Amino acid sequence: MNENRYPKCHIYSQDSWHDEAYIIGNKKGLEKLRDAINLTLEKGNTKNDFWPKDLEGYDVLIACVEDEVLDDLALPYSPEFYDRLDDEKEAYTVLKKPYYALKD
């Protein structure tokens, strides 16, 4: 199996306030992430497949929303550090179909 053909991308979230978040990938993975963001800005919600180093594929869903929508969402911190407020919505609520995908 040629692992170089996979768009590999590791996305590490921040655990708590002021922590760093990381996006680390091979060239193909970072170019695909860039292209997926550009497609989201052009057409709307996107859903594209990526792979971590163990090649267990996963989807990255991306949405571009207005500030008012973003302000209603739960913060992206680990539940260990942040308890979601009752009036905050889960992030997946803005990821409505249709999803656009890049053509391989």
Rank of each mutant, 00 (worst) to 15 (best):
E56L: 10
L61V: 04
D49R: 08
E80V: 11
L75R: 03
Y58G: 10
D59I: 01
L70A: 10
L61F: 09
W51G: 09
E66H: 11
I62E: 04
K53R: 02
W51M: 09
D49N: 05
E68T: 13
A63Y: 00
E56R: 14
C64V: 12
F50K: 04
I62A: 00
D67N: 14
E66T: 10
P52N: 11
V65M: 06
A63K: 00
E66C: 06
P52R: 11
S78K: 01
E66I: 08
Y77V: 07
I62V: 12
D71P: 05
P76V: 10
L70F: 14
P79C: 03
W51D: 08
E56V: 13
N48I: 03
L70N: 05
N48R: 00
V69M: 13
C64Q: 12
A63R: 03
A74V: 10
E68A: 15
E80F: 13
E68G: 01
E68C: 10
E56A: 11
E80S: 05
E80A: 09
A63T: 00
N48F: 06
L75E: 00
D59A: 03
A63N: 00
D49C: 04
P76Y: 06
S78D: 15
V60T: 03
E80R: 14
D49K: 08
C64G: 06
V69K: 14
D72T: 15
E56T: 14
D67V: 12
L61A: 03
P52Y: 12
W51Y: 15
C64D: 11
E66L: 12
K53Y: 08
E66W: 08
D72N: 15
G57N: 12
A74H: 07
V65H: 07
